[in-house]
Amino acid sequence: MSTTTVTAPRARLASYSRTFLDRHSSMMPTFAALLIFIALLIGAEMHFGNFLTPLNMSALLLNYAYLLILAVGMTFVIITGGIDLSVGSVMAFTGISCAKLLGEGYSAAVVIPAILLGGAAIGLLIGVLVQYFDVQPFIASLAGLFLARGLAFVVSLSSIRVENESVLWLQTTRWRFGEWYITPTGILALSVAAIGAFVLAFTRFGRTVYAVGGNEQSARLMGLNVARTKVLVYVISGVCGGLAGLVLTAYSGAGYPRNGIGTELDVIAAVVIGGTLLTGGTGYVLGSVIGVLVFATINTIIAYEGAEQAWTRIIIGLMLLMFIVVQRVIVVRSERRR
């Protein structure tokens, strides 16, 4: 008698967890990232005692808004099974162009669309190379990286200060809620993430992104528009690069052609930590948001500790390693089930 009463709920629990796993196994790495993020916050709070303050948490978003925007674009690209190495350079190019054009007296209403178009153009170039010339995404976007970096130096070899009010407004405005605050750049980054997540989950284009990452050939046979989708994800990533250029220029109050060297790798790291598989097919924008937060928190903790910045790299490296192993384990286990 007692055994049945004990096993029945347990069996039900098991069947629930099975259903959940069958539906959401691909979210497990994202959950893991969330757990790590929470653990990091709790650990830091216990260690420093004054870490989890509204001011600190608000600054996370402010300081890493550009990274979040880039990560959203990168998530699209990686889900299709591609990679975009150009984002750091695109951000530098659009950032310095923004500062230069504003310095020459153009209004922000002209400059901002122009730099977004610039980012989109480089993205389009990479997308076309990948789709129609069958170039490996790694190589195509590497070409994009050099091109954008070169263009940035063509625009200016040194940093250019920005004095345009409306661009600086993006950064200096602080909307406060008690001790919390948010800047327009923060709102921008969060909106990009929200739109990205929405597009991936609820539009035909978004689902085609997953389909292409699952199996391009099958997606084509299903009658989906693979070519357009593959080009478009690089364009999206390029636009995100442009937006990040704007945000970073506003943040630092200047454009600088050497900005964002190596940023593409930070972005990829954040996206992977957030649970997006580099092989394509699975991933979530929300995961990338968490990935960026993990990345930002580690950076902040290191700064708090006063330790060398090198430690950030080492810790990020170790976490990446861990996540890639976790992902492999998941993939191998799901293969074994078949």
Binding site: R23, Y210, A211, G214, N215, S218, L221, M222, G281
Partner: peptide, 10 residues
């Protein structure tokens, strides 16, 4: 020729 990474319904 289906996609193993997404749901049956999709």
């Amino acid at each position: 020729d289906l996609l193993p990474n997404i749901s049956v319904a999709e």
